[in-house]
C-alpha cells in the first residue's frame, strides 16, 4: 500500500471542537461490546475526522446526478483495482443496517418533512461511515463511494435547507482523498434513467417540490437544480469534474489515470472481464 500523497483539505484535520475527544477505539466502532476500559479514555466520541494517522486506506468518491454513470464506473473501478491487488470496499447512500429500511419506507409514504429526511440521511451516512468505512480504511482498503455526503447537501439545499446548516452537520465526516464529479446534462440523465427502468420515479423527478405536473418537465427542472448545486460544490471543494456524457470507456480511462497517479499504480491498461465487458460496449 502506498502512502497517502495528499489528503484533500487537510486543513480540517486540526480543527478543534473545544471538547475532550480522542479517536474512538475499534471496539466501539464494531457496534458491540463497548469495552469498558478507563472512564477517562472512554469519554470520547466517534468523531470520524479526529485521528487520521491510523487510516492507511484511501477514500475515493464518485458524485453526480441520477444517470451520470457512477454505478457503472464503480463496478469497473472495483474490478480494475482488485486486479491490481487492492482490497476494495464500496459504499452508497441508504445502505446502513441501522436506518436504511426506515428511510425507504418514509420515501414510499412521502409524508416526511425536509429536516427530518435530511437528518435521517445523515444518520444513515454516519452509521456507515463509523461502522463500515472507517474500519475498512483502518485495515488499508480502498473505499469507493457511490455518492457521499455532498449528494445529501445538494438534495437538502434544493429543498430549502441552509447550506451552512448542512455543511456543519458534515463537519464531522471524513473528507475524501479524491472526489470526482461526473457532469451530465439533465436531458442525458433522463435518457439513461429511462433505459434503466421504464418509468421515472417520484423522487428522481423531485415531485415533492411541485415544480410541474408534467413529469418530464418536473424531472428536467429538478435535475437542473441539483446539477447547479453540484457545480457550485465541485468548485468550492475542488472536485475533479469529468464529462459524464463521454463514452463509458473514456470516462473510465480518465478515472483510472487519476486514481493510478494518486495510488502510484504504473500500469493503467485495463480490459473488463467477461462478466463486465457488456458495460464497455
Amino acid at each position: 500500500m502506498t502512502e497517502p500523497i495528499k489528503r484533500e483539505s487537510a486543513g480540517n484535520d486540526g480543527q478543534e471542537f473545544g471538547e475532550t475527544t480522542t479517536a474512538v477505539t475499534e471496539a466501539s466502532e464494531s457496534g458491540e461490546g463497548w469495552t469498558t476500559d478507563t472512564a477517562a479514555s472512554r469519554m470520547t466520541v466517534g468523531l470520524p475526522t479526529r485521528d487520521r494517522s491510523e487510516l492507511s486506506g484511501h477514500l475515493i468518491v464518485l458524485e453526480g446526478t441520477d444517470g451520470s454513470g457512477r454505478s457503472t464506473q464503480i463496478a469497473l473501478l472495483t474490478e480494475w483495482l482488485e486486479s491490481q491487488g487492492f482490497a476494495v470496499q464500496t459504499m452508497g447512500l441508504r445502505r446502513s443496517f441501522l436506518i436504511a429500511k426506515d428511510i425507504d419506507s418514509l420515501l414510499a409514504k412521502n409524508s416526511v418533512t425536509r429536516y427530518t429526511l435530511a437528518l435521517m440521511y445523515a444518520t444513515d451516512f454516519f452509521d456507515q461511515l463509523e461502522n463500515r468505512i472507517l474500519p475498512a480504511l483502518r485495515s488499508g482498503m480502498i473505499v469507493l463511494a457511490d455518492r457521499y455526503y455532498y449528494t445529501l447537501i445538494v438534495r437538502a439545499a434544493v429543498r430549502g435547507l441552509q447550506h451552512d446548516y448542512l455543511h456543519r452537520i458534515y463537519d464531522l465526516a471524513l473528507p475524501p482523498d479524491l472526489t470526482f464529479f461526473l457532469n451530465v446534462r439533465p436531458q442525458i440523465s433522463f435518457e439513461r434513467e429511462f433505459q434503466k427502468s421504464p418509468a421515472i420515479s417520484f423522487w428522481e423527478a423531485g415531485r415533492d417540490l411541485h415544480l410541474s405536473d408534467d413529469l418530464y418537465d418536473s424531472f428536467i427542472s429538478y435535475q437542473t437544480m441539483i446539477r447547479k448545486e453540484f457545480v457550485a460544490l465541485a468548485k468550492h471543494h475542488g472536485f475533479t469534474t469529468l464529462n459524464g456524457e463521454n463514452p463509458i470507456r473514456t470516462v473510465n480511462a480518465d478515472l483510472r489515470k487519476q486514481i493510478a497517479s494518486y495510488l502510484g499504480i504504473k500500469n493503467i491498461k485495463y480490459r473488463p472481464s467477461h462478466a463486465l465487458v457488456h458495460l464497455w460496449q
Binding site: 458491540e32 470520524p48 443496517f97 437528518l119 463509523e130 461502522n131
Partner: peptide, 24 residues
C-alpha cells in the same frame, strides 16, 4: 437493542425524531 449507536448516530437519530415532531 443491538447497541449499534455511536454518540454521533445516537444524536442524529434523536435529532431526526425531534425535527419530525417540530415540523409537523
Amino acid at each position: 437493542k443491538r447497541h449499534l449507536l455511536t454518540p454521533v448516530t445516537f444524536s442524529l437519530i434523536h435529532a431526526a425524531d425531534f425535527a419530525d415532531r417540530y415540523e409537523r
